[in-house]
């Protein structure tokens, strides 16, 4: 992963990488309540994931991912940082 920092481009710009944004603590609780889930039940993303290299994240943060979907145009999913 360290090697990746040498790359002179941001993985975010790549066609395969959807938009990743960090969710605020307040909104995080709202989302968890809305879907009636705990953090443990959500899909995970590694803290060192290349797509997160420009976002400051900590373990337990919630990442909002806006994918382009062939079935619904835009799909929003969440991943927990581990």
């Amino acid at each position: 992963m360290d090697e990746n920092k040498k790359l002179n481009f941001n993985p975010h710009d790549h066609v395969l990488v959807p938009k990743h944004t960090k969710i605020s603590e307040e909104e995080k609780q709202k989302i968890l309540q809305q879907y009636n889930v705990s953090l443990k039940q959500l899909p995970k993303i590694l803290r060192l994931d290349p797509a997160l290299q420009n976002i400051e994240v900590q373990k337990g943060d919630l990442i909002k991912i806006e994918r382009k979907s062939p079935t619904t145009n835009k799909a929003v999913v969440y991943r927990v940082v581990v």
Partner: peptide, 8 residues
């Protein structure tokens, strides 16, 4: 996955 991340 290594270069672009898990979503890619």
């Amino acid at each position: 996955a290594e270069v672009l991340g898990i979503e890619a």
